[in-house]
Amino acid sequence: MAESKSIKTIMDGIWRDHPVFSMLLGICSALAVSNKVENAIAMGAGVTFVLVATGVIISLLRKIIPRQVRMIVYMITIASFVIIVDRVLKAYFPEISDSIGPYVGLIITNCIIMGRAEGFYVSNNLGQSFLDALSNGFAYTYTLVAVAAVRELLGFGTLLGFQVMPEFMPKWVVMSMAPGAFFVLGTLIWITRTISGQTED
């Protein structure tokens, strides 16, 4: 029984309740940092780390956090881990840190983390919360990487910095800018919603 619940938690995270496509959470950063695959991977890893750490802390403390101040507790927990991510990026990956700069700080307001904390971690034990955090983080990362791969391929003609497209292909610069983000994510949402059959009324 426990095993099937774990599988359900994972499946919900990476497909059925997909944080970006189905719940529309964390769109800001999904759009803003997805111009290059390396930025997307860094952002995905950062968000996953913060999710897992927050999930562990909140699910351990869930019995002693008073209900009235829970939002502030989530915020402080999330912000503390975001500072760690920011410092690590600055120290070991200065180039990536420069290009996604302030968006690292905006992980704090990434609604995926708040949403999962409020919707899942407060009412579930450590193991389930950990699985949920991992699967949501994974779902978020693969979405970001998918969007980034399309945009980097069309906008720069490269993947992870390697030249992929033939040289004579003109670079589609708009794809690496804001409009490209909207078009690619909009199309992806269209595709996934058609497959999963989820519709808006």
Partner: peptide
């Protein structure tokens, strides 16, 4: 298209 409605 159905999937396009809303966020798309």
């Amino acid at each position: 298209p159905k999937g396009m409605k809303g966020p798309g």
